[in-house]
């Protein structure tokens, strides 16, 4: 048996037996990325919605910046957060470097532009459709935002899932601010990088399998949401 097939065999065994080390890493990954997406949504959805409906000078520029930030390289975000959180940095006193909190902060910054840009687009389109009706109701800004965020919920969920896909698959940011410390800040992507360089291909492959499965499941969820939205929400429109 070649080295690769043997590693694959061991990897499948690790997944099926729910190896404790593997499960720990997967759970921490999910915890960090889900929290990062939750924070990014709490900030990004209202911000994107506001950018979608408000009219002010410099709006176009802000939208361009927002779109450009979607392509932010994770290592650069990691480096920036590192500088902020390191001992000599402005937030060094909190001692957050090399903790899961630092990883959540870094991933939140990565996901925020995606959530804001996608929700901006969604809300802007919906607002064009609803504008005259909402004006006829004398709906104020807060009520309008609430209406649009709720009625755009299917597309906004898609934006959140897209953000989760980016967070869970990136390695650059979390390895810099997390440090890949065993049992503390080791997540799937950093473990794969480390185990591969150490030559422990079985664990790396097992984690790779789980990661690919999660990524595929997220994409499937987006497709299902999108199809459901087309069918249900646009019927008769």
């Amino acid at each position: 048996m070649s080295e690769a097939t043997q590693a694959l065999y061991l990897a499948v065994e690790l997944v099926i037996s729910m190896d404790a080390g593997l499960v720990e890493i997967v759970l921490l990954s999910l915890q960090v990325s889900l929290l990062a997406v939750a924070v990014a949504c709490a900030i990004g959805l209202p911000l994107g919605a506001l950018l979608g409906i408000a009219r002010f000078r410099g709006r176009r520029l802000l939208i361009s910046i927002n779109n450009a930030l979607m392509g932010l390289p994770p290592v650069v975000v990691g480096l920036a957060v590192y500088l902020m959180l390191s001992r000599s940095g402005p937030f060094g006193v909190f001692g957050l470097l090399y903790t899961p909190t630092a990883m959540i902060i870094a991933q939140t910054l990565l996901v925020l532009p995606i959530v804001a840009a996608l929700s901006r687009q969604t809300i802007e389109d919906l607002n064009a459709e609803y504008d005259e009706y909402l004006r006829s109701l004398d709906m104020r800004l807060a009520g309008r935002l609430k209406t649009l965020l709720w009625d755009g919920r299917a597309s906004l969920a898609t934006a959140a899932i897209a953000g989760l896909g980016r967070a869970i698959a990136e390695v650059g940011a979390v390895i810099i601010v997390g440090g890949n410390i065993d049992h503390v800040t080791r997540v799937m992507t950093t473990a794969i990088a480390l185990e591969t360089s150490k030559g422990d291909l079985a664990l790396a492959l097992a984690l790779g399998l789980v990661l690919v499965t999660i990524a595929l499941a997220l994409n499937a969820a987006v497709e299902i949401l999108r199809a459901g939205a087309e069918r249900k929400l646009h019927a008769g429109a």
Binding site: E132, Y133, S136
Partner: peptide, 8 residues
């Protein structure tokens, strides 16, 4: 309106 905006 002639074509009502029905909320989702």
């Amino acid at each position: 309106f002639q074509r009502p905006v029905i909320l989702r």
